[in-house]
Design a protein around this nucleic acid. Structure first.
Lengths: 336, 336
DNA sequence: TGATTGAATTAAACTGTTTTACCAAATTTG
DNA sequence: CAAATTTGGTAAAACAGTTTAATTCAATCA
């Protein structure tokens, strides 16, 4: 167990001061003779020197880290979203610090402070549980720029957004055109703003067609496969011709419940989801859903926050990404 | 943008030295008067002080971090494995630093050094791509304990293991008992040791029954749904009665390919997988597979590495977790 | 000749925390 | 009552770097 090699070791071997080494290794080498520069680089390789991350972060007051807060790491949508973030963060020498709040407000707050403690340079927050102004307060207080991927009712800030309201509308419109009017919705017990907008868009469209969906037709569960599975019974009890699952995970759970009830999709009942996780085209029947550009959302979020880290004064920017209805085989046209 | 509150600020307000504050906040408060202790704690809450992570890590030479290296973050098996690690790490005040090597050796090596740079206290490595002795070298050199979840051919070290060889055997035995002899295998292009053992167990069992599987029946692809989907055609071309997918992801990809080819599972062809990801009981038909206790593997791994961090001298320990064949509906009994 | 300039390098201050060694006053002990 | 011990606390060094301002030395200039 050899001791870790430090900048001082390197400086000694090179017969220069640590200042010199530091400067050279940070690219400010125009002030030094070519000989010295070469020698330092040479020795760095030889000795396998890499600056200590914590020492660097401490004095730079930057952990070269961006904190990422998502509700659920295991949800495939967020999984791809995170990969998008990771991809651009890594390319720029930043490392994402990923936290899953699991709908737990205490945990969310803890992670906020943990990010501060770790000198995160910025944060990306997807669908916060807590009050947005609370988050804004904490983060502002500590001078940490952040970004929401939510239609959060906050006056200013960078945003990455997809129009969830419109997504809900599109699905409703699609089902209506296929002749469905007895439609049941399976949503989250504690919907984040995203989901809420999605739901409202859907309901509004039905209202506009004088076919308002009654409350009994709105079933609440967890945003997971298991949640969908559990909700299947009560959903089926409402005798719908179609079910709108607020995300694909729920839809896949419903598939199972529906199959176990001896019904067939889409012959006996239609199902639509939301997100277009990659699984959506692997289930039988393939799932009609709204495609959200999860990876691109992650990329945009990371780009935006990095840009702000570079320049705190730049104008706020709002990136809006398109969504798309992907028609597959889980909906039947029931017009006689 | 108020400045971050430091231990010095707190000390000033409390009219004591920073030493005192540090000691008290670290629980070494028996040397101080009750009054002082109370005051310090009171002020900590009031001022919202939390010690700077980087400063702490620097002087403690510990990032309270454990580096985790997995081949693929998106694979549901690893996803649950990571959650297991996370769970016990967090409970002990450690944060996992998660890296996905994506079968890229360069990246793997980079992450190793990044972990060192960040003063990781230990590492968990699942199925390394690189030579194990290479990893051992680097990590040993820097005094970082590590743990493999692999049947790696290394003399000593902590290990978390499930018997992949036996898992392969069990599946082979099962298929043989159901009358299958024309069996095709779909495996990874660059199998890690885990997968290799799994495959060898499977092949050996067939050999033992004088039904050795020829090389043409071993098809290589990526370890993903898409990989499975792409492999379906060539797999079907070998006219098997059953297919062994080396993990469930591949199996789900095969499902799609098989369905698109107009065949039915298990009527026309049987499929078995490996891992028992939660999706396995959501697909149609539900998938017969080997259950690996992914979450528990993660938990054990984290516990083991934490124990070693506490006490570098303790005896090496090898945890072996049980696997189980889960019989579902994807295999038909074809004995006439 | 003395001042100025420029190139190459460095000393010293700083980041926020922990730790070791030490100190003064109060209390106990012999 | 002097010596020893306890009580409650602090100063300073260390951790591994970065950054700013200063220094040295030689060459150029007026």
């Amino acid at each position: 167990m050899t001791k870790k090699v430090t900048i001082t070791d390197l400086a000694k071997r090179a017969n220069v001061s640590v200042t010199t080494v530091s400067q050279i290794l940070n690219g400010k080498d125009d002030r030094f003779s070519e000989k010295t520069v070469k020698r330092v680089h040479q020795l760095q390789k030889e000795m396998g020197y890499a600056p200590d991350f914590n020492a660097q972060s401490l004095i730079r007051r930057s952990g070269h880290t961006i904190g990422v807060l998502v509700p659920n790491i295991n949800n495939p949508f967020f999984s791809r979203f995170l990969r998008g973030i990771e991809s651009v963060a890594m390319d720029n020498g930043y490392i994402p610090l990923i936290f899953g709040s699991n709908n737990n407000q205490k945990l969310e707050s803890y992670y906020l402070f943990e990010s501060i403690r770790r000198a995160a340079d910025g944060m990306i927050i997807a669908s916060a549980i807590s009050d947005v102004s609370y988050i804004d307060n904490i983060l502002n207080q500590n001078g940490i720029p952040y970004l929401l991927t939510d239609q959060a009712p906050i006056t200013e800030g960078d945003k990455v957004d997809v129009n969830n309201y419109h997504g809900g509308e599109m699905l409703a419109d699609y089902l209506i055109k296929k002749g469905h009017r007895d439609v049941t919705v399976v949503t989250d017990k504690q919907p984040t703003l995203n989901l809420h907008q999605r739901l409202v868009g859907f309901l509004d469209m039905f209202k506009r067609h004088q076919m308002a969906i009654p409350n009994e037709r709105i079933i609440e569960t967890d945003l997971t496969k298991l949640g969908g599975y559990h909700a299947a019974k009560s959903a089926l009890a409402t005798k719908p011709t179609a079910i709108f699952a607020l995300n694909d995970e729920i839809a896949i759970g419903l598939y199972r419940g529906i199959h176990e009830a001896g019904l067939r999709i889409p012959d006996d009942i239609s199902v639509v989801g939301y997100d277009d996780i990659d699984l959506a085209e692997y289930v039988t029947p393939t799932l009609t859903t709204i495609h959200q550009p999860a990876f691109e959302m992650g990329e945009s979020a990371a780009k935006l926050i990095l840009a702000r880290i570079q320049d705190q004064k730049r104008a706020f920017q709002e990136v809006s990404l398109p969504i798309e209805l992907i028609e597959r085989n889980s909906v039947r046209d029931i017009r006689s």
